Amino acid sequence: MQQKLIDFIQSGHPLSRMDKDLIFQYFEPVLFPKNRIIEEAGKVPEYLYYIISGYLRLFHYNENGDEVTTHINCPPGFFTSYFNFINTAKSNENVECITECELLRITKTDLDSLTSKSEAMKDFSIEVFQKSIVYNETRSTELATLSGEKRYRKLIENYPGILHNVPITYIASFLGMKPESLSRIRRKLI
């Protein structure tokens, strides 16, 4: 599985033999069943995950006890509660496997070791976290400025596989709407 991560990284960053060996050394392959919470709210996230296959979500409970999905990730890519992982701070969010997930994971300590030993991985890590910041800022802007229909259209345009793998209730929450509202939008677009 590490070879898939190597191929992903090499699409933009050349890796030496040593870099590749370090990836095999530090990234641990894991397989989780659907509906498994792999990082719990109230704890410091233990791992940064690279998704080989499957869908994950970040969610928390609001003051009414309802689940609020704040992020859904489609493979390939990295996933965790980034701020809390980087700052080794307790997260208020859970990381859950929506589907069965094949993942590679790395601890913060091992990520720090890896990036101190490999300039290519240091550069790549910085790029991943920069993209995460841009994504989160873009998402905040879209939630504040786009209509529900436009947010939905953009989601299915960019991630068409999400509809076949993620329950509508999670998608609606992620888009900042009630499931009934999303159902009306979907009926209108058919």
Score class of each variant (00 low, 15 high):
27 F>E: 06
134 V>E: 15
138 T>V: 12
6 I>V: 14
84 N>Y: 09
16 S>M: 04
49 Y>K: 03
119 E>L: 13
149 E>F: 01
95 V>M: 06
116 S>D: 11
148 G>Y: 00
106 I>K: 04
2 Q>S: 11
57 R>P: 01
121 M>Q: 11
167 P>K: 01
91 S>T: 15
118 S>L: 10
171 I>K: 13
41 A>T: 03
31 L>K: 09
19 D>W: 05
101 C>Y: 11
48 L>A: 10
141 T>C: 05
59 F>M: 07
15 L>D: 12
136 N>I: 02
92 N>G: 13
148 G>V: 00
108 K>E: 10
116 S>F: 01
15 L>R: 06
122 K>M: 13
70 T>L: 08
184 R>P: 00
119 E>G: 04
77 G>Q: 01
27 F>Q: 03
82 Y>S: 11
122 K>H: 09
14 P>H: 01
162 I>N: 10
94 N>I: 03
39 E>P: 06
13 H>I: 08
58 L>E: 05
177 M>W: 00
84 N>S: 13
12 G>P: 02
182 L>M: 06
41 A>L: 10
139 R>I: 11
125 S>A: 14
182 L>N: 05
1 M>Q: 01
143 L>R: 03
2 Q>P: 07
24 F>P: 11
19 D>A: 00
65 G>R: 15
10 Q>E: 15
39 E>N: 14
74 C>I: 05
118 S>M: 04
60 H>R: 08
99 T>N: 08
105 R>V: 08
128 V>A: 12
84 N>H: 13
66 D>L: 05
90 K>A: 01
130 Q>V: 14
3 Q>I: 15
176 G>I: 13
190 I>M: 13
182 L>V: 12
86 I>D: 03
131 K>V: 01
113 S>H: 11
163 L>H: 00
156 I>K: 07
20 K>D: 04
24 F>S: 02
21 D>E: 15
108 K>P: 09
149 E>G: 09
2 Q>L: 03
9 I>V: 13
94 N>E: 04
3 Q>W: 06
93 E>H: 00
62 N>T: 01
14 P>V: 14
178 K>N: 13
6 I>S: 06
61 Y>L: 15
111 L>W: 00
107 T>D: 08
36 R>T: 15
77 G>D: 06
80 T>C: 00
149 E>R: 09
45 P>M: 12
19 D>V: 02
78 F>G: 04
156 I>T: 10
117 K>C: 07
92 N>K: 04
142 E>H: 04
188 K>R: 07
43 K>W: 13
75 P>I: 06
169 T>V: 12
168 I>N: 09
109 T>F: 07
114 L>S: 03
120 A>C: 07
34 K>T: 08
165 N>I: 10
11 S>A: 13
157 E>P: 03
159 Y>N: 11
100 E>A: 12
12 G>S: 14
122 K>N: 13
66 D>R: 03
4 K>D: 00
28 E>N: 15
91 S>N: 08
164 H>D: 15
113 S>G: 02
6 I>A: 09
43 K>I: 00
10 Q>Y: 05
97 C>I: 10
